[in-house]
Nucleic acid binder design. Sequence first.
DNA 1: CGATTAAGTTCAACCACTGAACAAATAGCA
DNA 2: TGCTATTTGTTCAGTGGTTGAACTTAATCG
Lengths: 389, 389
Amino acid sequence: MTAPGAPAGQQTVRRHNLSLITTALAAAPSSRAELAQRTGLTKATVSSLVDDLITRAIVVEGEPANGGVGRPARPVRLDPDGPVALGVEINVDYTAACVLDLTGELRCYQRHVVENRANGAAEVIEQAAAVARAVLAEAGQPLLGAGLALPGVVADDGTLLRAPNLPGLAGARPGMQLADALGAPVLVVDNEANLGALASLRADPAAGPDFVYVSGEIGVGAGLVVAGKLFRGASGFAGELGHVVVTQDGPDCGCGGRGCVEQYAGQDVLLRTAGQPDLERLEAAVTARDPAALIAVAQAGSALGVGLASLLNVIDLPKVVLGGMYARLFAAITPPLTIQLNRRVLAPRRPGRLSRSPLGGDAAVRGAAGAVLDRALSDPAGVDWPAIV
Amino acid sequence: MTAPGAPAGQQTVRRHNLSLITTALAAAPSSRAELAQRTGLTKATVSSLVDDLITRAIVVEGEPANGGVGRPARPVRLDPDGPVALGVEINVDYTAACVLDLTGELRCYQRHVVENRANGAAEVIEQAAAVARAVLAEAGQPLLGAGLALPGVVADDGTLLRAPNLPGLAGARPGMQLADALGAPVLVVDNEANLGALASLRADPAAGPDFVYVSGEIGVGAGLVVAGKLFRGASGFAGELGHVVVTQDGPDCGCGGRGCVEQYAGQDVLLRTAGQPDLERLEAAVTARDPAALIAVAQAGSALGVGLASLLNVIDLPKVVLGGMYARLFAAITPPLTIQLNRRVLAPRRPGRLSRSPLGGDAAVRGAAGAVLDRALSDPAGVDWPAIV
DNA sequence: CGATTAAGTTCAACCACTGAACAAATAGCA
DNA sequence: TGCTATTTGTTCAGTGGTTGAACTTAATCG
């Protein structure tokens, strides 16, 4: 089922159905009878599966809720005091970590401003491990595993390729190093755009199972969510929105090409055009309706719209969620962006196509932890669950 | 397994394993013992599954092949005299149909030149049905179902949207109409690029499970194959390479945008720039090294390369297969295209990234029939197999 | 002609889901 | 208080599917 091409047996069925239960419970706690309805399984089967999950200490039974007629239902839910997932984000100018419990609730969060741009790999990793240890100690629950978000292209094997703003880590496998430093498994390593997309999926399931999350940091990236799953392409390079072409003979780009989105809508270019030193000032200038800032943002939005239109014509997703820098500049950047999308995207226009990520700068860390949860909950039988305290 | 979110039972396992056998046999006929090795199933299970498929008249047993020591193996293969799949292609200036047997072998093929551009829906469909009936009569085997390839964007429900060169059919559901005319189920309706991609997958499995097939007809389309399956996006609009942007303020495009790939590398523009009336003349001029033709093709190739680079940066596929017009101009169009790809694609360069479709203009029809086979063979228990003669 | 080798079949065991009957726990009502 | 209706959750025999081992079949080799 999960693995096509692999032989299936009864255990395969069991794993699949266990996963049905856990994902149903991740959406909402339910009684056994309700789960049977929601999943389409029999009451008997649900009982057996839930018993299984209870002995595995993944779910717990609540107190019967009285009120209606008939035998009161006993709610079953993912154990909020069970094992937790750790999210770590190493970025250019900060390091962050958070802990999510099994229900997806945020238990702890810390963000430290650090100039990682100049630091070497060992330093960066140790610093991240320190933040991680701090949040873990604060949470005080057994650890399921960690997820790591990085600002750059991450290959399937966890190698960080192309991290122009984090030269110290480029070419390394930060996931392995962090695992060593923490003494805990790092189950997911991916770039901030992809993990930000996962966080958006988790934060707002109503946004639907298909959307693009646009991460506007120093670079411009996109996380593609198709059918509720991250689309990473053949080897993890998908979603490089920053290097989609806006004008074939436009300004030279660090990637070797010319006229890439990043040369119009990247943070460096945007700040330079607007004549502002940093994002805070730019935001202030925009709200103060400074003409140079407004024009710069409009130009960036238009170019981003052109690139997004190409992207949407290639992969056809109905929604766009703006994150990072673009979430902060949402009001100013949306109009020119929308114009380009409406003009150039072939698929029928949808109301509410554009939305703003509610997570702000925390999307990637939360996505890193969330990805670990997803892994565990989507195949509860295939994961080593830590012993319960 | 196939359907995530659906409860699984033993029959689910059976369906999955049946499909394992049929897809293994589609790749190569094998004895039961060999199938057991290839699929990872037990000899006992394979025997049971094969018996099942034999009573369903999907596979047949061959004569024992002597030679080695031990009991000789009895080869099992998909029945070449079993039901067949019909492929139909309605295009701007021709209509084609073909029949593939279960093994994927081409049994019959016909292509009729017709000016469909001017015709109404009823006429076009009836003409296509006539060609289809002709090849079916020639094949004389029971029909599994039909697949239909169309030049335009096809929605998930089979409606033909955006067929600028086939106004008679735009907005219609040609699949339904063809089904009525033929009195046979039309199981697959899709655009020529997607089905051409499937045909390439079938014709050259070595090309790998991940590639883009570029269809250069009047319009420019791309069929995206990811993990051996067609990627259609959220609602079937994926792969619109023709409307990826090359230059944001380039020439106006029929789609409402500006500077789309089609305005540089589409057939109409290419012929006009080269000063040639049709493709045959253009090809001749290119082989005769006519300067205007060479320049026109080089410009088109370069622009196509820019668009493809954006596409590959968005979806990260390791291979590009050129079909249709671009396959015919392969030698001339490849150099400028390669330059752009090498310059702009972020993923590491691969040897042999670019190849030429071996199927020429027949890719889409064959893909249409092949898609029907895929459907049937990937879920043999879920398909109504026609009664055997 | 017997030994060896490999292919394919048979069969008891096992595992997981199913459906129906049943037990449990509550509200409503006389 | 007790009876009924109602809904939840459990129990259990039945079914369908895979497994592994033993067995049969059919060939080559010496």
